[in-house]
Structures are given as structure tokens and as C-alpha cells.
Design a protein around this nucleic acid. Structure first.
Lengths: 194, 194
DNA sequence: CCTACCGATCGGTAGG
DNA sequence: CCTACCGATCGGTAGG
């Protein structure tokens, strides 16, 4: 109720777009698919948005902001690197869990961003991944971590984290906290016994 | 030289399609893009192929065959489960390394397969992943592996393996053998020292 | 937010 | 393998 329903029409469009883009991909989703989902004519979408690409842009850069915001709390206390890594993983997983559709679009469709945006996007992502990489490298220097290839390790870590958007909620054993624990445990301790 | 250049025109089309689909995605690649890459008119493609989707189908199912073929050698000797897992990982990584573009398409665009094919595809993938899962579960029973969530672990393993198609050959430190060693080591032993 | 409509491009066919 | 062409749909604009 209340007098809502006004300026959140744009949000409604964004949200529907996230779902459709996730399911069929950005390129395979037409503006008329989107209009249909929202319940208006395709041409009417343009009263609220500027272009199809603007929708994608909004999704990608809002996700990027959320990922960066999550890191703010990691640096706070002077924690050891393995604890920092665990906090950073927890933040990343939580952002994904709170935005599953947008995450899927972020990971799969950012390549369809137009130009200057695509380059900006890649720079931000690289900066973000470097943050994790530095943690691993400092951990190695401090002999907390084994002497691994940090570039390889951080990529593997991200690929492990970034598919969790596909989790389809089989119940309660997939909260962000539990996922974080499983990933952290596997990456830090490995599969082998002892 | 030689009298080649005849029935491998279809292969030429398939190969060009793999590159284009990988770079821009299946949906964002048009038949005229493909024709342009091959050097003929768009309409002429249909002398060699049946439809755009047939190209995708061929890519996806040929990859699936290669992945399954790779498993044949794993069962051979009565190896312990951790060695089997390593062999299976090595096979998977090698198939990807030998078919980077096709792998990218396999992982990203199989969802655009039409219907009965998409269901068949998902069944095969599930069977394949189950093979790895069983290894992990037997390893746990035999106390070779820690008592982990096997579903979660196998998914994490696949996400770690399946991004390696994106490797862009920075030199010689990314042969299939070295990648396999790094992944196996990280998954089995973990990042923590001691 | 709609009707009416745009030029461009889509995957694909006919016929040679 | 090409020319000629198909109906459908694409993202988007004009004007109200």
C-alpha cells in the first residue's frame, strides 16, 4: 500500500531485466521480452530507461560497487592474512548471495558493455582481484601460506566463489556463511586427509 | 598443397564459428559475421550446414564426447582414489587445453541448445560430473579424503578447472601438465602452510 | 505510457 | 557457392 509505485518503476524494470538476462543472456533477451515481463509496451520502456545497454551498465557497475564496499570492513582490525582472506571471501560470497541474478549477469554479460564502459569495468575488476592477490602474497611472505603461484591461486579462488550464484536453494545448508566456510576450508586446508 | 580444400570446408566453418562464438557469444554472433569470417556469402553457409543451431550442437556434443573419452584411461589400473582424481583432472584439463574456443562455447552457450538436445546435454554433463563425485565419495569412505560435502566439492573442482580455457598463453608455464599440477595441489593440499 | 512506425538486421529459402 | 529475396524481429524514435 502507501503511495509507492511511482519512481520504483525503473527499479521494477531493472529487476525484471536481471532475471531475464540471467536466464537467457543479455543478447538473447529482447526489449519486447522485457516489456512483456514488466507488463507494458516495448516502446514504453524508453520512458524509464535510455537504452538496453544502460540497463546492463547499471547492473554491472552497481554490482562492482557492492563488491568494493564489502572490502571496507576487512582492513579494519590488523588481522593476519588468512583471517583477512576469510573475511574477504565472506564478503564476496554474501554480495553474490544477495544478488544472484545480477551476479550472473555481471559474470557472463559484462563483455557486452560498450566502450568506454567495458574498459572501465575490466580495470575495476582487476583492481578488485588484485586486492585478494595481495593478501595471498603477503600471506606467503609471512609463511602463513604455502609458496604457491598467487595469480593462479586467486583465479582459482574467484572461479570457486563466482559460480555460487547458481546455487538453487536446496534448503538451509546454503547460507552465505556455510558456503563461505566450505570454500575457505577447501581452499585453505584442501581435500586430503592430514 | 595437396588436393585438400574440399570436404574440410565444413570444418573451416565450424572452426570459425568456435572463435566467434567464444568471443561474442552464440546469440550475439550473426550468420553474416560468420560468413564474413569464412569469406563467403551468408546464404552460402547453408550449403554446408543446416542451421546456426546445428553448429552449436556439433560443438557441444563433440566436446562432451572428448570429455568422456578422456575418462576411459582412468579406470584402467586399480589406482587409489586420489590418483584417479588426479588422472581425471589431467584428462579434463587437457581436453580443455586442446579445444579452448570450443570449451568456452561448451561452458557458456550450451543453454541455447534447442529441445531435445538441451536435456540430453544436461544429462550427459550430470553423468560426467557424477563420475568425479563418486571418486571423491569413495575417497572419503576409504579415509583418503577429509569428510567434505562431495556435491559442493565437485562443483568447486569443476569451476576451478573450467575457467582454464581463458588462459591466454603467457608462455610455457601454462601447459596442461602444469595447470593440472597446480589445481591438484591446491585442491588436495590447500593453501595453508603445514 | 500508448500508437504508429523507422531502418537495419536477423536466420533462412528458392533457384540456379 | 551466388543473387535475390523472405517474413520476422531487432532496438529505438516521434508525437502525443
Amino acid at each position: 500500500m502507501a503511495k509507492a509505485g511511482k519512481e520504483n518503476r525503473k527499479d521494477h524494470i531493472q529487476e525484471a531485466a536481471q532475471r531475464l538476462f540471467r536466464e537467457n543472456g543479455y543478447s538473447a533477451t529482447s526489449m519486447s521480452d522485457l516489456a512483456n515481463e514488466v507488463g507494458i509496451e516495448a516502446a514504453s520502456l524508453y520512458s524509464h530507461i535510455e537504452s538496453k545497454e544502460e540497463i546492463l551498465r547499471t547492473i554491472c557497475f552497481e554490482m562492482a560497487d557492492q563488491f568494493f564496499d564489502g572490502l571496507a570492513s576487512v582492513e579494519d582490525a590488523g588481522l593476519p592474512e588468512d583471517k583477512k582472506l576469510e573475511l574477504a571471501i565472506a564478503s564476496h560470497i554474501e554480495v553474490i548471495a544477495l544478488n544472484r541474478s545480477a551476479s550472473a549477469v555481471f559474470f557472463h554479460d559484462s563483455r557486452h558493455l560498450g566502450e568506454p564502459y567495458h574498459s572501465d569495468f575490466k580495470l575495476m575488476r582487476r583492481r578488485y582481484e588484485n586486492y585478494f592477490k595481495k593478501i595471498i602474497e603477503r600471506g606467503i611472505e609471512q609463511k602463513i601460506f604455502r609458496c604457491v603461484d598467487s595469480t593462479f591461486t586467486v583465479r582459482t579462488l574467484f572461479s570457486a566463489m563466482n559460480w555460487t550464484y547458481a546455487w538453487h536453494g536446496s534448503g538451509k545448508n546454503d547460507t552465505p556463511e556455510i558456503i563461505t566456510k566450505k570454500i575457505t576450508s577447501l581452499i585453505l586446508e584442501g581435500l586430503s586427509k592430514k
